[in-house]
Design a protein around this nucleic acid. Structure first.
Lengths: 257, 257
DNA sequence: GTGGACTTCG
DNA sequence: CGAAGTCCAC
C-alpha cells in the first residue's frame, strides 16, 4: 500500500496537477494539506472519476486538510480536528484508519517568525499535537502521522543550515517539539531509510528557490515501530515540484507491505 | 490584406486565445481594445515569435489599445491618443498607416447608463472622435476606423430591440453620434456587405449571454468609399467567443484587395 | 511568487 | 461572469 502526503497549496488551483499525480503514482491514500476550501466546495468531482473518494476537513482561504482513499479500500474511525487549537489555528488535522493502519494527516502552523505571537501559537499547536498523538498511539499500534510539519528536523534537511540557523522552521524549540513527538515511538521514515540523503520537500516560490534548490525537508512521514517495520520504501517526488502551476511542496510517498 | 478588430478584455489574460487567433486567421493587422496593460508591461513576447510586432498605447487596469502588424509590413505615422478626452476617458485610440491604408483603432467609452455622468462623457468622447476623424479623412482617402464603438447601430444589431430600446449602447443619442461620424463619408462595412444579417460581436458574460445568443453588434469597421471599394469580405469570427477563457467580444475581420 | 478574498467595473 | 487592483499570508 502506498501512502502519500502532499501540501498542494489550494486543491482547486492544483486540480490538474493532483489529477496527474494520482494517475501517475496511484497512491492508495493521499493526504492533502492547505486545501484552502470549505468542505461544501471541495472538488470531489476531481477525485471521483479517477477512482478516489475524499474525506475533507477544510475552511475558507487558509489551511484545510483532506484524505483521498482509493475506491475499494475502506476507511473507518474518521476524526477531524485537533481539540483546543482550532479557534486560533484553524482546521489542520484529519485522521482515519485503512485496514490496520492508522493515518493522521496534519498541517502544522507555520509560525511566521521565532518569538512572534504566531510562533507561540505554533508551539501550543505542537504540544496539543503531541498529546493527541500519545492517545492515538496508545490505541493504534500501526500508525503513521504524515503532513507538512513546518519543521526541518536537522541540518541535513536544510540547504543552507548556517543561513537558517535559529530561524523559524529550524529553531531549537521547534526541533525539540518534534523530538518530543518522536519520543512517543515514532521514526522519521525518509531519514530512517536514507540516513545521509540531503533531499527537500519544500522550496520557496520566491527568489528562484526551486531552480537553485534552496529547499527544506519539512513534509514528513512519522511511523510507529510496527508501521515502520512494514515500510518498504520512502521517497520524495521532486519532479512534481517542476514546471508550471506546481505547488511549492513536493509529495512524499511511502510503500507499506 | 486582412484587418481585424478584437476587444480582448485584457491582452494578458487572453494570451493563448490571441496567439491561437493569429495562427488561425493570420490577419495582416490586428487592432486590439481593452488591453488593460501599461506599455512597459505589454506582452510583446506573445506576438514577436509568431511574426507580428505591436504598437501599444495602454494603461493600468482599464482601456488600452494596440495594433499588431505582421512582420514584413511596415507601419508609419503612428498616432496615439484622442486629444482632450484622455484625462477623463483614458487611453482609447491609436492610429497608423500600412501601405496606403490609414487605420484608426478606437475603444469608445461604455457610458454605463443613459443620463449618467459617464454617459455624458461618452457623448463628449464621440464628439471629439468625430472631429478627429474629419481631420484624418481630409488627409487620408483610404481610411478605416475599427474597434469597439459601444454602440449598436440599429435594431438589426440587437438580439432584443424592445428590451434594449433607449438603453445605453442603443440610445438615440449614441446612434445619432455614430450617424454623425458616418456622415463624414464612412460606411459600416459589415452592414454594407450583409444588409440583412442579424449577427453580433459582443455577448455579456453574465446570464448565459452567449449560450442564449443575447448579443449586440458593437464592434465595427467603418470605411471611407475608397477603402470600402477595396473591401472583399467582412465577417465576425463568432467561434472565437466559444469555449473557456474567451473574451466577451468576437473579432471582426475585413479583407481588402 | 503564488493563492484566495474583497472591491470595482462593465 | 470575469477582468484587475489591493491586502494578506506563507
Amino acid at each position: 500500500m502506498i501512502v502519500s502526503t502532499f501540501n498542494v497549496n489550494s486543491v482547486r488551483a492544483r486540480a490538474e496537477r493532483v489529477a496527474g499525480f494520482l494517475a501517475a503514482r496511484r497512491p492508495d491514500v493521499l493526504c492533502l494539506q492547505e486545501t484552502k476550501v470549505e468542505d461544501a466546495l471541495f472538488p470531489h468531482e476531481l477525485f471521483g472519476p479517477l477512482g478516489w473518494h475524499v474525506r475533507a476537513y477544510g475552511q475558507k482561504t487558509w489551511n484545510g486538510v483532506a484524505i483521498a482513499v482509493r475506491d475499494g479500500l475502506e476507511e473507518k474511525d474518521v476524526h477531524c480536528g485537533l481539540a483546543g487549537t482550532e479557534e486560533e489555528a484553524g482546521r489542520r488535522l484529519i485522521a482515519l484508519t485503512v485496514g490496520d493502519l492508522r493515518i493522521i494527516n496534519v498541517y502544522v502552523v507555520n509560525g511566521q517568525e521565532v518569538g512572534s505571537a504566531k510562533f507561540e501559537m505554533k508551539l501550543r499547536f505542537l504540544a496539543a499535537l503531541r498529546d493527541f498523538l500519545a492517545d492515538e498511539i496508545s490505541r493504534h499500534e500501526k500508525l503513521i502521522i504524515v503532513g507538512d510539519f513546518n519543521i526541518a528536523p536537522a541540518d541535513l534537511d536544510v540547504h543552507d543550515p548556517a543561513h537558517w540557523d535559529g530561524k523559524v522552521l529550524c529553531s531549537a524549540e521547534e526541533r525539540a517539539a518534534l523530538t518530543a513527538m518522536k519520543a512517543l515511538g515514532l521514526g522519521d521514515l525518509f531519514r530512517v531509510m536514507h540516513p545521509e540523503a540531503r533531499e527537500f520537500s519544500w522550496w520557496d516560490y520566491r527568489m528562484l528557490g526551486f531552480p537553485k534548490n534552496l529547499g527544506l525537508r519539512i513534509d514528513l512521514i512519522l511511523a510507529t515501530a510496527a508501521a515502520a517495520k512494514a515500510a518498504q520504501r520512502c521517497w520524495i517526488d521532486r519532479d512534481e515540484r517542476k514546471g508550471k502551476n506546481a505547488s511549492d511542496h513536493a509529495p512524499v510517498l511511502a510503500e507499506f507491505g
